[in-house]
């Protein structure tokens, strides 16, 4: 009985169960919802969210109220840069990825320095950075969208590659493996958990926590930039606020995945399931023809409920 309860409250099990329940619900409301090609489509959408959430996971696990609200603007920036570098040419795909990932990495480092050196709370710093990037986007695009995806990239994201699955899903699987390796097989990964769990104790083992934390924001920016490349591959072109819709879901996916907002716990596989569950939830809500306000309300309530489960601060001990 006790064992059953601990299994049922395990975030991974909860996320997996909610995926099944949501699929069943969707199928009941609209037959065909859980058909094979539909599921592949849902997974493709999940992949973009999952890539953004990878960076968000690192920042949140690193602790000290870590959060990155600039991912939305950085996705838009990544998409805009990639679109302009590619301008529809297959040969420019690799440079486009490098430019998008590199620029967003650099911007993330700047946010990280604000957090570690100036000690601005992460939420405020990344929100401020989002404003700057938004402004840069307007200045760069002069209000009109520009750039477009290379055909191969679009095919890679949208068309089946092997076993009826598009290439982006294999990229996502590779990223998941890389995240596992980073977190479980490198000193950096161990350091991320250590400083998220107890920053003072981490410093007492000699870890350079400031430098590492700065790096985390850089990585988060880079993942957002790469997600931006995927976005333009998915839609063919971009507009300057294309990334905004990912900010909130990236945080919720992280929390559904079992990563405490207090830091120091969780892993990326949970986040993968969280991103899938959230995408299906969005799809179900759309199928139910729930209006925008209803979806917002459900998102907010889900976030609060998850905070109640995982995210409460420790009691004042005197």
């Amino acid at each position: 009985m006790h064992r059953a309860r601990t299994i049922l409250t395990d975030p991974l099990v909860l996320a997996a169960l909610s995926i099944l329940v949501l699929l069943g619900l969707g199928e009941a409301v609209s037959p065909g919802f859980a058909r094979g090609d539909q599921i592949v489509r849902l997974l493709t959408v999940s992949a973009i969210l999952g890539i953004v959430a990878a960076g968000q996971s690192l920042v949140v696990i690193g602790g000290r109220e870590g959060i990155d609200l600039s991912v939305g603007a950085l996705i838009s920036l990544g998409a805009l840069l990639a679109g302009n570098v590619m301008s529809g040419q297959d040969g420019n795909i690799l440079p486009a990825i490098l430019v998008a990932g590199g620029v967003t990495f650099a911007i993330g480092i700047v946010s990280g320095l604000g957090v570690t050196v100036l000690r601005i709370p992460p939420l405020v710093m990344t929100l401020g950075m989002a404003g700057v990037v938004q402004g840069a986007l307007i200045a760069m695009s002069r209000g009109t969208p520009s750039g477009n995806a290379a055909p191969t990239l679009m095919a890679f994201v949208n068309r089946p590659l092997v076993f009826g699955l598009p290439g982006i899903l294999f990229v996502w699987a590779l990223i998941a493996l890389a995240m596992w390796f980073l977190l479980r097989r490198t000193t950096l990964g161990y350091a991320i958990y250590a400083m998220g769990s107890n920053e003072r104790a981490a410093e007492f083992t000699g870890l350079p926590t400031r430098r590492l934390r700065t790096l985390l924001y850089g990585l988060s920016g880079m993942f957002a930039g790469i997600a931006g490349v995927c976005v333009i591959g998915y839609t063919g072109n971009s507009f300057i606020s294309v990334g905004d819709q990912y900010v909130l879901p990236s945080i919720i996916a992280v929390v559904i995945g079992g990563i405490s907002l207090a830091g120091g716990t969780g892993n990326y596989f949970g986040v993968v399931l969280g991103a899938i569950a959230l995408t299906i939830l969005q799809s179900v809500l759309t199928t139910l023809q729930l209006e925008f306000w209803g979806r917002q309300l459900i998102f907010g309530a889900v976030l609060l409920a998850l905070m109640l489960l995982y995210g409460r601060t420790r009691q004042l001990r005197v």
């Binding site: 161990y190 958990y193 250590a194 769990s197 107890n198 003072r200 104790a201 981490a202 007492f204 120091g264 716990t265």
Partner: peptide, 12 residues
């Protein structure tokens, strides 16, 4: 305060 990495394994 100074040593425990709360919630992490003995190995870590």
């Amino acid at each position: 305060r100074d040593a425990a990495l709360h919630g992490r394994s003995i190995f870590e």
